[in-house]
């Protein structure tokens, strides 16, 4: 097997370890401290935010506008799909118009 294949398989192994690691550690505890509980409740918002915020600063007008429009639609309770489609339409339109 090529080096590339080995690297891919090693990458797959470490990735899998991250996906079971948190539970392997946490499931050893009978009771979870309230502060740990509060920390775990914050995980989705905290992690997902880091996947959006930096790329929002690197893009141009089209990217920023698409996030703003999507964000407003999401907040107005249009649901995940409505906001996503609105953001995507704004993005593609502005990229092709403004360039």
């Amino acid at each position: 097997m090529s080096t590339t294949v080995w690297i891919i398989l090693a990458g797959a192994l470490v990735t899998y370890l991250t996906r079971i690691g948190g539970d392997l550690v946490l499931s050893r505890f009978e009771r979870i401290h309230p502060r740990v509980e509060a920390a775990l409740n914050a995980v989705p918002a905290a992690v997902l935010t880091t996947l959006v915020a930096p790329v929002a600063t690197t893009g141009g007008v089209a990217e920023a506008a698409s996030l703003v429009v999507a964000g407003v639609m999401y907040l107005r309770g249009g649901g995940l799909m409505t906001g996503f489609v609105a953001g995507a339409v704004v993005l593609v339109a502005l990229r092709n118009l403004v360039g």
Binding site: P44, L48, V52, S66, A70, L75, G83, L91, V92
Partner: peptide, 16 residues
């Protein structure tokens, strides 16, 4: 817009 659809989707998940 291929490269920027996921951030838009992730923003929605943050809002959820």
């Amino acid at each position: 817009g291929f490269d920027f659809l996921l951030p838009i989707y992730f923003l929605g998940l943050v809002m959820e």
